[in-house]
Amino acid sequence: MAKLSNRFWFQLHGWFSLPIWLIFCFVCLTGTIAVFSHELTWLTNPASRATNPDNLPAKPVAELVTKVQQAYPTADVGTVMVFEPYLVNAVIFTDHDKPYAIAYVNQYSGEIQQINEGITFIGFMRSLHGWLLFPWPGSYSVGYYLVSAMALVMLGALVTGLVIYKNFWRSFTQPKIRFNQGKKTILTDLHRLAGVWSIWFLMVMSATGLWYLVQAVMWHADIDIEPHAPLVAVTDMPAQHSAPPVSFADAMQITLQRFPDFSPSYLMLPEHNRGMYTLMGGGEHIFYDEQAYTLSINPWTGDIAHEKSPANMTALQTVMHIADPLHYGTIGGIWTKAIWFLFGLMLSGMSITGFMIWGSRTVKAVRDSRNAASLQEINHGA
């Protein structure tokens, strides 16, 4: 009975890992690359580098927006994205001949180093990993569901693997790889050893992946985790058309007065007369993402219409804002990214070695079955 039980768990482990192993491996590899997407962007695109040979302080973001508006007088700036200090700021705008453009502005020199009218490497890798570039016909994407569902596969493979591998904790103190007993033994030992050392990583990826699946369902059901930015009341607007008295620079100053440790990351300017400044950024909490602090500021009155921070988040909002740092390993900068990258490679390798082990067992089983059938036919013939 025990032997039958072990066989059952082994087969279940295989079915959790193998039927969609190619998709699983692809998601793991793209996620591993996405961890270092910012660093790879700096490495491959000189225009994305925020060079600062004179050690100048970073200019205010509002000044960078002004630089773009001066270079493109008819442009409509909508968003500014702020990355690590070694990458330029991205000022996103539209113009009469540019339906979508990103100005790479060096925050130290104020120079516009490139105009990108396509998708960025960072955006491409995050999209490829997050939803396999499937379309979003509404509030959902089949690709996002497919990638998020990999969390169930990963969790099932983890649980069944621990059931199969008795006394797995010995691999922490007595790691074993037998190089002199054939290819199959080496693959099995590598698979087991990587699996045991990746238990914590598999748990983190499973937990955050399950959250992304829940989030996808909520998006599909039009359940808002965070409220949309409010609209300016008609009574706050002047009777005659005029420019809002509160500038982008003023809105940034209001934000810094409210949150002194505010580090801007995603800044949206009003899209229309009733739109507001929506300023998102990070703060002193390392486990929260770079959009944990949000302010909606009325451009006509300067009032804070809505604010969000770790201090007043709901439980769902808290989970949403700690999921990405845990999933991509950004909680400790380059060092935790390196750890996540290493274990991402290990997880990708586990999916490959698992398939190879399953393949060799399957081929052997088919060969043994054919030999048994042939032997049976010979015996009958005799």
Score class of each variant (00 low, 15 high):
residue 4 L to W: 12
residue 8 F to P: 05
residue 8 F to L: 15
residue 13 H to T: 12
residue 17 S to K: 03
residue 25 C to F: 14
residue 29 L to K: 00
residue 34 A to E: 07
residue 46 P to D: 07
residue 47 A to S: 09
residue 49 R to H: 12
residue 53 P to M: 01
residue 63 E to Q: 12
residue 77 V to S: 11
residue 79 T to I: 15
residue 81 M to P: 00
residue 86 Y to R: 13
residue 93 F to V: 09
residue 98 K to N: 10
residue 107 Q to F: 04
residue 109 S to D: 05
residue 118 G to N: 15
residue 129 H to Y: 03
residue 129 H to Q: 09
residue 138 G to S: 13
residue 139 S to W: 09
residue 152 L to F: 13
residue 161 G to D: 06
residue 164 I to G: 07
residue 172 F to V: 08
residue 176 K to G: 02
residue 176 K to T: 07
residue 190 L to H: 04
residue 191 H to Y: 07
residue 191 H to A: 06
residue 196 V to Q: 04
residue 202 L to Q: 09
residue 214 V to N: 00
residue 222 D to N: 12
residue 225 I to F: 00
residue 233 A to G: 01
residue 246 V to T: 09
residue 251 A to H: 06
residue 251 A to R: 10
residue 259 F to K: 06
residue 261 D to A: 14
residue 264 P to R: 06
residue 272 H to I: 04
residue 280 M to H: 13
residue 297 I to C: 01
residue 301 T to D: 01
residue 315 A to W: 06
residue 316 L to V: 08
residue 316 L to R: 09
residue 317 Q to D: 08
residue 325 P to S: 07
residue 329 G to A: 08
residue 333 G to L: 07
residue 337 K to T: 05
residue 340 W to T: 11
residue 343 F to A: 04
residue 346 M to S: 12
residue 347 L to W: 08
residue 349 G to N: 05
residue 352 I to R: 00
residue 361 R to F: 02
residue 363 V to A: 11
residue 378 I to Y: 10
residue 380 H to A: 15
